[in-house]
Design a protein around this nucleic acid. Structure first.
Lengths: 201, 201
DNA sequence: AACGACACCTGACACCTGTCACCTGAAATC
DNA sequence: GATTTCAGGTGACAGGTGTCAGGTGTCGTT
């Protein structure tokens, strides 16, 4: 019997998947939680074989959850990411965090039980859409460039960004200029959009 | 027996809802489609009582689907919108298009069957999160302001926007200035973000 | 000790943005 | 026919943005 924890903030999907998976004779969903923190807490009981996790959740993302599980070392469960968005950076970070499977929400749902069994046997699975070259290119942005670009995308001015990050206005503009150049964009807005689309923020 | 069509591009959710709803004795899911056009075509058979539709789908959105059904006049089915985002403009447009129920994907899934029955009896249902004042305020932006703001959000300069919309650069800046003022934002980026969050784009 | 890599800062320049007062011409209203 | 209304435009101004050529101090390397 494979014991599952579902971490998913769309309750409708979570409960639907629960009833779907519980129809499988060898799978049992023990619990559903709606954010990463709750998932981490629930895992301490040690009775979970596979965590099914969304990425975008309140409090703690699925990627951070996976990283925490890896760092903790004492939690035996495997992590399966189920997400709506096919973003390169997400897959990369997921793999770095030791995630065993990464699949998309528009995959046929019969796939899910298969993937869970594969992972439980020690296997791996990556959504085929994500295996092309486009998706695997590394993020060229430095940590500073990323954080500056993220704030710029909220509409903050260079001065406001500098105040938040304890940098001078000129430095912020230099980082933004670098980022814009690397992304081959015309301005901060386009650079932010492109970086988001590629999962680099 | 209430006959259902599901229009939802996340196949995983669509099939999970199907199996969930088919457990109800008085509900039967006849078909699943993954975009608005396919839904409209399927409805021509005339055997559907209630359409369960997402908003964000390829080809034709759920809101446009609802509007088309209303305009056609000869299709008897009720429309239930099930969406992830709580955006004011969406709800408004949905109600204008004669939608009978509007609920969020993070509602408990038991709610779904209840809402379907309510709608089938001739009732209505709106997600309680959307009934507060914030969500029901009307969009203050003119059509021009909206389109200019949408392009500005892509990273286009005022000049490029003017070229696309056959307006002078100065006029584009005037519209943007108006929009920024109405949204109480500091610049075009923040104005675009706020407008998107409120479903006005 | 000398070296380069790195993070951060400065100043200057051309250009873009946001704002405002005001103009124009074509409806619509009176 | 005169007046208002409104989409669109112009020109000017302060301030923000993007770029570049430098500058400082701190690391590890060699």
């Amino acid at each position: 019997m494979i014991r599952i924890l579902i971490a998913e903030d769309q309750r409708m999907l979570a409960s639907a998947l629960t009833s779907l998976l519980n129809l499988e004779p060898d799978i049992r969903v023990l619990d559903c939680v709606s954010d990463g923190e709750a998932a981490l807490a629930r895992l301490q009981l040690g009775d979970i074989d596979v965590v099914l996790s969304d990425i975008e959740m309140p409090k703690m993302s699925g990627l951070e959850l996976a990283a925490r599980i890896k760092d903790a070392g004492n939690i035996a469960c495997k992590v399966v990411i189920v997400t709506a968005f096919a973003r390169a950076g997400f897959l990369r970070r997921a793999l770095d965090a030791g995630v065993k499977a990464y699949l998309l929400k528009d995959a046929p749902s019969e796939k899910l039980a298969d993937v869970i069994r594969t992972v439980h046997r020690g296997g791996r699975y990556i959504a085929p859409e994500l295996l092309s070259d486009t998706w695997s290119e590394a993020c060229p942005l430095s940590a500073r460039e990323r954080s500056v670009l993220a704030l710029a995308g909220e509409g903050l001015s260079s001065e406001q960004i500098g105040a938040k990050l304890h940098l001078s206005t000129g430095t912020v503009r230099n980082y933004l200029s670098e980022a814009i150049g690397k992304m081959d964009a015309a301005n901060r807005i386009e650079a932010h959009r492109l970086a988001r689309e590629r999962g680099w923020l």
